[in-house]
C-alpha cells in the first residue's frame, strides 16, 4: 500500500422513496488494500457497491474512484474495475465460453488470456461449453469470478464472492486475491462471512442499518475487542466482578469474561479465587461483530 486512495466515498446517502438505503456513509480505500465491508443482509452493502459502480445515483454525497468522480467518469472507471455481483447471473441461452467471450468483447481484451484462471478455478472445456443455466451455483460463481478478474483490473469490487464455492475452492480464491493484492490491485470485499474477512482484509468497515458503525484495521478491531478468558472454579461462586473484564457467560463453575483493559488486575483477582483451569483466546471477528452490534443496540 502506498497511501494513494483508490476509493473515496464521502457522506453517501441513498433513499428509496421514503425508506433509507444508506445514511451518510464515508470511507476511503487505499491502493493495494483488501478492504472488508461487513454487515448482515439488508445492511446497505449492495446499495453502497452499486453507488460505487454508478448503477445507483446517491441522494447526496460523492464517490471518487481513481481520483475521478464516478458520475462524470463512469465509463473510464469501469474499464479499470472488475465486479462480481452478489447474485451473479449470466445469460441462460449462452454457454460459459460464449458468455465470457461477450464480456471479453465488451472489455476489449483477448479471450485467450483466461487459460490460467480456468486452470486455477478448475473449469474444464466441457464445463465452459455447457449452457450457463445447466451449471451448478458453484460453477456459475467461478464464471463470475473470471469475468471480474479477466482484464487484470486495478480495482476489484466483490459482493459476497465466495457464495456457492466449496471450502477448497474458497482457499484457491483467497490465494488468487492475495496474488492480485501483491500486484497492486485494490480489493473491496463485501461479505457477511466474518472469518474470510478476518483472513484477507487489512481494514474493515462494519455497516449496520445503512450506517458505518465501525471502521478499523482488522488488528485494531481485535485489539479493541480484547481477549476472551474462560476459567473454571472449584464450585459455583455466583456472579463475579473482575476489574478490566466484562462477564459474558456464567454457568455453574464455568465463567467466561471478555478482557477490555490491562490483564494485571485480572490476574491479581484470579489469584484470590480457587481456579481449577483457565484459558485465554483471541476473539474471532464473529465475537467482535456481535459486540459492535450489542454496543450499538445499547446506545
Amino acid at each position: 500500500m502506498n497511501g494513494k486512495k483508490v476509493i473515496q466515498a464521502d457522506q453517501l446517502t441513498k433513499f428509496y422513496g421514503q425508506s433509507r438505503g444508506i445514511d451518510n456513509i464515508s470511507f476511503d480505500v487505499e491502493q493495494g488494500e483488501i478492504f472488508g465491508f461487513l454487515g448482515p443482509n439488508g445492511a446497505g452493502k449492495t446499495t453502497t457497491i452499486r453507488i460505487l459502480l454508478d448503477l445507483l445515483r446517491p441522494s447526496s454525497g460523492e464517490v471518487r474512484i481513481f481520483d475521478r468522480d464516478v458520475r462524470m467518469n463512469s465509463f473510464g472507471i469501469r474499464q479499470r474495475c472488475g465486479y462480481l455481483p452478489g447474485k451473479f447471473s449470466a445469460y441462460h441461452n449462452l454457454t460459459g465460453n460464449q458468455f465470457l467471450k461477450l464480456v471479453s468483447k465488451i472489455k476489449n481484451i483477448p479471450y485467450q488470456n483466461n487459460a490460467e484462471l480456468f486452470r486455477r478455478l478448475e473449469l474444464s472445456e466441457s464445463d465452459l461449453n455447457k449452457k450457463t443455466k445447466e451449471l451448478s451455483h458453484g460453477m456459475l460463481q467461478k464464471i463470475g469470478i473470471i469475468q471480474a478478474m479477466m482484464h487484470q483490473p486495478g480495482l476489484l469490487i466483490l459482493d459476497e464472492p465466495t457464495t456457492g464455492l466449496d471450502p477448497l475452492m474458497k482457499e484457491v480464491f483467497y490465494e488468487l486475491l492475495l496474488e492480485e493484492q501483491q500486484k497492486g490491485t485494490t480489493i473491496f470485499f463485501s461479505s457477511h462471512n466474518l472469518s474470510e474477512v478476518e483472513k484477507l482484509c487489512t481494514r474493515v468497515a462494519i455497516i449496520r442499518q445503512g450506517k458505518v458503525v465501525g471502521l478499523e484495521t482488522t488488528e485494531e478491531l481485535k485489539r479493541k475487542a480484547g481477549q476472551m478468558m474462560e476459567f473454571q472454579l472449584d464450585r459455583n461462586h455466583g456472579e463475579l466482578e473482575i476489574p478490566g473484564a466484562e462477564a459474558t457467560l456464567h454457568r455453574d463453575q464455568l465463567y467466561l469474561f471478555r478482557l477490555t483493559g490491562d490483564i494485571a488486575p485480572v490476574l491479581k483477582r484470579l489469584a484470590e479465587l480457587p481456579v481449577k483451569s483457565m484459558s485465554l483466546e483471541k476473539p474471532g471477528l464473529e465475537d467482535i461483530f456481535m459486540n459492535y452490534y450489542k454496543d450499538q443496540k445499547a446506545k
Partner: peptide, 10 residues
C-alpha cells in the same frame, strides 16, 4: 440481474 453486470462493464 444481468443488466447490473452488463452496466458494470465498460
Amino acid at each position: 440481474g444481468t443488466m447490473e453486470l452488463m452496466l458494470s462493464q465498460p
